[in-house]
Amino acid sequence: MLSEQVRAKTDRELKKYPPDRKQSAVMSALRFVQDEKGWIDTADMADVAAYLGMPQMSVYEVATFYNMYNLKPMGRHTLTVCTNLSCQLVGAMETLNYIKSKLGIGVGEVTADGKFGLREGECQNVCDEAPLFMINNKKTCGHLTKEKIDQILAELDKE
């Protein structure tokens, strides 16, 4: 069952679409699930499917198509480092490698304490701030340097 909160938020989305096009809200519904628990389980997808009256496989297609949905637990703070061209030109790979060694995990992995997860991402449309990462797909941190990374990680660690 979707939580009350997810259902309430989804209901609000549903108002934007005709009543016979409930599946239009699938991306939002999946996002709400991820916001709540950090990732999306197949059971959640089945719940979303039931809630929106669409085939389960159809929800699965959407959830696996978009890179920003986490299909496994990714830690409390998921850092998504953009490794597309503009970012690479100004050292995205060094940024990524630094975070890897700092957290002791590889891309797609989570630290043992479950605090940090690391992902590679596509262009975030803010190339002017490169190199950069996003925290939980919500907050962009740009112009990264080693010092800045240390500082951000230290702050997140305290949360």
Binding site: M45, P55, E61, T64, F65
Partner: peptide, 16 residues
Amino acid sequence: LGQAFRGEHAEIMAFM
């Protein structure tokens, strides 16, 4: 059946 994942990784499969 559906087509899960994207681009080069796209696969035909059944849910779960």
